[in-house]
Amino acid sequence: MKGKIAILAIFLASPIISNAADIPLLGNTKAQLHQLCGKALDVEIIKMDSKTTVMGLKNKQTNNFDLFMSSEQSPEQIIYSKFTPVKYDALSNNYIPTDDQDLDIIWGSSRDNSGKTSYSLTLGTKTYSCGILQPWPSERADEIYGESS
């Protein structure tokens, strides 16, 4: 019985624990969506007003997010697109392409005949299956009612 209560407590606390992470900044904007690809590839997404997509991938050497922008506009359902490296320029408030254009990154989704959507990320010649693309939780309640830092 104690084991069942412990499992129930862990299950109920898991959304709180998973939402406790800070939402990463991609330039000056917080990521809107996130997902896990492969075993540990953290993908962060911002859908821009211009219908382009900005992606943040955690660089395993620097532990910072490197930024990439889709090469074409995406409809509501994000289809496969090539992503090119960009840097955020605080003066112009824009993402600017970098000279490092030899990185081959493709990310997006497809639907099978049954309507199931699946995502994948291709880095060079290696393709990783991705989990569910999910929105980050709103921080509004904490901003209004949470403890001050």
Rank of each mutant, 00 (worst) to 15 (best):
Y128I: 00
E72H: 09
F11H: 03
N93Y: 02
T127S: 14
I23Q: 06
Y119S: 01
Q61R: 04
S129G: 12
S18I: 06
K82E: 00
C130W: 06
T53E: 03
V86P: 15
K82I: 05
G115I: 15
T29V: 10
M55V: 10
S74Y: 05
I96K: 02
K4G: 11
I106D: 02
V86R: 00
M55L: 04
K58H: 01
P24S: 00
P97G: 05
K30Y: 06
D99Q: 13
K60N: 01
Y80I: 02
P75W: 10
G108D: 04
A141I: 15
P24G: 07
T117Q: 12
K39R: 03
N64P: 02
Y145V: 02
M48H: 15
N94K: 11
Y95C: 04
K87R: 04
Y95P: 03
E147I: 13
D104W: 10
S129R: 01
D142N: 05
Y80V: 08
S71F: 08
L67E: 01
P24I: 05
I23G: 06
T62Q: 02
L36E: 06
N28I: 09
I23Y: 08
L36A: 11
S120A: 10
N94S: 08
F65K: 01
P97Y: 02
F68V: 08
Q32N: 06
P85Q: 09
M48P: 08
T53I: 15
D66A: 09
E147H: 06
A20E: 10
Q101P: 01
D99L: 04
D142A: 15
S92P: 14
P97K: 00
